[in-house]
Amino acid sequence: MESKHDIRLTSGELTPLWTGYQGDSMANCVLKYFLNKVEDAEVKPIVEYALGLTEEHMEFKNSLFRNEKFPIPLAFTDKDVNIDAPRLFSDGFMLLYLRHMGIAGLTAYSMVLASSSRKDIRVFFNHNLKTAAELLEKATTTLQSKGLLPRSPYIPYPDSVEFVQKEGWLNGVLGDRRPLNSSEITHLFLNIMTNSVGQALMLGFSQVAKSKEVVEYILRGRDISSKHIEVFSSVLRDDKLPAPMTWESDISNSKEAPFSDKLMLYHTVFLTALGLGNYGAALAGSTRRDLAALYLRLTAEIGTYADDGAELLIKNKWMEKMPGAIERDALLSV
């Protein structure tokens, strides 16, 4: 019977543990601030639940890293959050944020299970997968009860099974463009939603960040999100389908920062990385060629934006180095 100390952690296990520590510590700061500001009696227990998950994750990883003689990342601490700063986000937006935490967790944990071989690590990520689903369920149910749950567009049921009759079904050229199918509608809707969360967060961050460079970078991200929301919404409107609302009105006029510039910049880059993954999934799920071209173009834009964000993190000495292979050339004496 394999014990958890019989074998070292593989790169496939270290990567989600290390990056997850960064994400959990960031979310822990955000949720501590949320908990100090939330007023809705239905939302507060969900914030507490999510905060408990981040603390549980970090406790496991701290213990694991110590046992493995692996350096614990610095990541984010109480120095990166001011829970007494004025309210920046509405309770409704906090609830939406929690829902997207659950969605991101489900996506991440289902993928990392495929790269994990050690039993204790598989048990940990399996547990996280279940709790992420529970967080998503709690947030979704509460959003629904409050009439705040965004729903993807309804489409009519087909009368019968049909087969595609011509190659032109793949085209997206004006004048010979078929209506969107359900997969394409779903991805457009989800990408509007994730961009809406990012747009609102970056609006709030841009109001309170101190560094001019960080403010300019975050504002650029907000503008990219706004543009992408309009692009995706216009595709839906072309087929007379509704686009979900945005959440900018749920950001207050506060100018006092609840988070450090380091955390807000990292969070912005983190959201951009999630966006890249979402666009990749949308590209794979969209068979109309104009949509494929659209996702490729927008992916290139946010890829450049993410790269610029990484450079800004490095410039400020805020990016910890991810574990990697040995730099063999640096060991050479000649």
Rank of each mutant, 00 (worst) to 15 (best):
D91V: 04
A273E: 09
S252A: 09
G20D: 14
D40G: 01
S90H: 04
I251S: 05
L53K: 04
T246W: 01
S115D: 12
T304L: 05
D250L: 09
H127V: 08
P258D: 02
N278C: 05
H127E: 07
S225P: 01
E39D: 11
S115M: 15
L203C: 03
G105L: 06
V43L: 08
V208F: 12
L291G: 03
E301P: 11
P158F: 10
F76H: 00
A310Y: 08
S234M: 05
T268Y: 02
G198S: 09
A114S: 15
A273W: 03
S286K: 04
A27E: 03
Q22P: 10
D250N: 13
Q144K: 15
S25T: 12
S252Q: 11
I229A: 02
Y49K: 14
N316Y: 13
A310L: 10
F232Y: 06
S225V: 01
A200E: 01
S115P: 01
V164E: 09
V334M: 10
V269C: 05
D91Y: 06
L51S: 06
S206F: 02
V173D: 07
L313M: 09
L17M: 12
G175S: 11
N278A: 13
L129I: 02
E311V: 00
E59S: 15
H100G: 01
A104M: 13
D84T: 08
T186K: 02
N128R: 06
K79Y: 09
W169K: 01
F259I: 07
L64S: 12
I185T: 03
V43G: 02
R222E: 09
D223C: 00
A85R: 04
V269K: 04
